[in-house]
Design a protein around this nucleic acid. Structure first.
Lengths: 189, 189
DNA sequence: TGCCAACGATGACAAAAGTCGATGTTTTAG
DNA sequence: CTAAAACATCGACTTTTGTCATCGTTGGCA
């Protein structure tokens, strides 16, 4: 499983990385069932995960247990509640496996040590942060204007595989529309 | 004007900062009129701005010239199109002054040099990035669920000064609702 | 394997948001 | 200072979105 992460890092930072094995040695493989809570809002996020296989939901919920899904993240990417992970403050979001997953987890202490001691790993962190930021900005600019129908078309164009991979309920919550509306509009395409 | 930036940095990183004067020497004071375009989508963002005084709009527009405002940023904070600034790719967002402004601008070359040569400045960059990211995540999680009325109440609670400082049209675009709807709902509070 | 809970689709209706045109008011360049 | 443009509000109307109840299907777990 580590091999996937090794390849991922080499793809981004090139082959000439000192200490790559040292870096990789801090990651722990984790296998999960579906519906496992990895991060709970209110608690400190202790790990950054690299998804080798599977699919995660990043979401919040309010008093009435209404869920909003900020992101659905699949294999080959990083996932964490970065704000909490970085500061040690309570997380504002939850992360849940929506499939059985194979993850590589690195804890806060190891992460901090690596960022400080391995300059190349500091770059990895910056890349994760920048990618996450760009993703969020894109999402705001895209979704704020789109109607329900346009959001569905966006999904079909840019993340078509999600539509068959995860439940309609989840998709609707990710698109920010009502599940009944999603069902109706989808039928009319 | 530089004094404001000096204070801002000291507030965040403490007083024992090497090279603070060197860092500050790379910032150029800029005074602008209102309605000045600082960054245009399609072009590379060349500066990061610290707002000493005034107010900026970060927005996108589509083919039909519909504007979406992702953020309204006021004095005491940083503003840039970070993705473009970092990579040199064309910007996807515009930045415009909505008041006469006093800004401190640092260009890409100087910025890169400082990030590499002054470890403390690297921390400044990380703080900007993390704050921007947290801001975006918060915005997604907040606005995706709220109705038009709830968004207005949110504004009144968390950014009340904006309501009198900038135009209703701009506020509406920031909240992601139609300006007529904003006008009507606001009247009923 | 079989049962139950969760899921997905759909019709009827309610509520919210958007559109458009008209009108009076502010702003702002010249 | 003034004319033109942009802005804010409002009523009437349309469209979109949300809600609720129902019903058949699916799929996960004991």
């Amino acid at each position: 499983m580590i091999a996937i992460l090794r390849q991922h890092i080499i793809d981004r930072l090139g082959n000439d990385i000192d200490n790559l094995d040292l870096v990789l040695s801090h990651f722990e493989p984790v296998k999960t069932k579906r519906n496992q809570i990895l991060v709970a809002q209110g608690e400190v996020c202790q790990y950054v995960y690299f998804i080798a296989k599977g699919c995660l939901q990043v979401y919040t919920y309010d008093q009435e247990a209404n869920e909003t899904t900020r992101d659905i993240v699949i294999e080959g990417t990083w996932c964490s509640e970065l704000s909490s992970f970085g500061t040690g403050n309570p997380a504002t979001e939850n992360i849940r496996t929506i499939e059985p997953c194979e993850l590589l987890a690195i804890d806060r202490q190891s992460f901090k040590k690596l960022v400080e001691s391995v300059p190349q790993f500091d770059k990895v962190y910056k890349q994760i942060l920048e990618a996450s930021y760009n993703n969020s900005v894109y999402r705001i600019n895209t979704f704020m204007t789109l109607t329900a129908l346009e959001r569905i078309k966006w999904l079909m164009q840019f993340r078509p595989k999600l539509m068959t991979r995860v439940s309609s309920k989840l998709i609707a919550s990710y698109l920010g529309i009502n599940k009944d509306v999603y069902s109706r509009l989808k039928a009319k395409l």
